[in-house]
């Protein structure tokens, strides 16, 4: 398999009990790409993301990450593979018992190879990278606002210098101002670090600002995965209604 393909899904089928969520999803995500996954509510976007992360095992089909099957190898090999991507969960999923500093330091400490001073320097750098102040390092997650905890979660996702960044609804629940600045932050990081980004969103403005390619999830499969301009021209009922809203507004 071509190593340039960061993520490859082949005939992915996912079901919960009798409920068929995904039925034969095929998708390739190339290195250095920003791919937005869109679809109606309950269309299985987040489920698809969780399959890529390996939180669900597919009923059939396969997930390849960095050219290797996701579940191949023993515990340590899987751990190495999982350290190559970072995930920003919808609610941030910060460890509520740790303060901001320890949240970001946690994955670095788990490497069991770095010295404490190096970890502190990296945490300081990551905090600056997501535009937070050093004073925020001692705050607990419960004390953070929505936008701030999203930033801390992003810093944690970036702690291990991932090649692939997965964002689940990165701007949901943020006001337009904060959402715009968060999007700008992700764009800047993508440009600087050359990370492949996969994001799930149903926010049209996020989509327009970020996405290089749009993968549309409808009828339990990926119906198209082309550039934004081409997607908008497609004749599919979901795509029509999704972008109609925007074109009326814009």
């Amino acid at each position: 398999m071509n190593p340039k393909k960061v993520v490859a899904l082949r005939g992915l089928i996912s079901r919960f009990g009798d409920n068929l969520v995904l039925n034969g999803v095929d998708l390739d995500i190339m290195a250095d790409d920003i791919v937005a996954l869109v679809g109606g509510s309950g269309s299985g976007k987040t489920t698809l993301l969780r399959h890529i992360i390996g939180l669900h095992r597919p009923a059939a089909g396969e997930v390849f990450l960095f050219g290797e099957p996701l579940f191949a190898g023993n515990y340590l090999e899987q751990q190495v593979r999982r350290r190559r991507f970072g995930v920003l969960f919808q609610q941030g999923a910060l460890f509520s018992a740790f303060n901001v500093r320890d949240n970001i330091a946690f994955p670095l400490r788990e490497l069991k190879a770095l010295e404490e001073e190096e970890i502190q320097a990296l945490v300081a750098y990551k905090l600056a990278m997501v535009e937070l102040e050093p004073e925020h390092a001692l705050l607990m997650p419960a004390q953070l606002s929505g936008g701030m905890s999203r930033r801390v979660a992003l810093a944690r996702a970036l702690a291990l210098e991932p090649e692939l960044l997965l964002l689940d609804e990165p701007t949901a629940g943020l006001d337009p101002d904060r959402s715009t600045s968060f999007v700008a932050l992700v764009r800047r990081l993508h440009r600087q670090l050359g990370i492949t980004v996969v994001l799930v969103t149903h926010d049209v403005s996020t989509l327009l600002a970020l996405a290089g390619r749009v993968a549309v999830l409808a009828d339990r499969r990926i119906v198209s995965a082309v550039s934004l301009e081409e997607t908008m021209k497609l004749d599919h009922p979901f795509i029509q209604s999704f972008f109609q809203l925007f074109s009326k507004r814009g």
């Binding site: 500093r101 502190q120 320097a121 990296l122 945490v123 300081a124 750098y125 905090l127 600056a128 990278m129 050093p134 004073e135 390092a137 001692l138």
Partner: peptide, 9 residues
């Protein structure tokens, strides 16, 4: 160099 030197409280 600029940013990692910041001392965390």
């Amino acid at each position: 160099a600029e940013k990692s030197g910041a001392l965390l409280p």
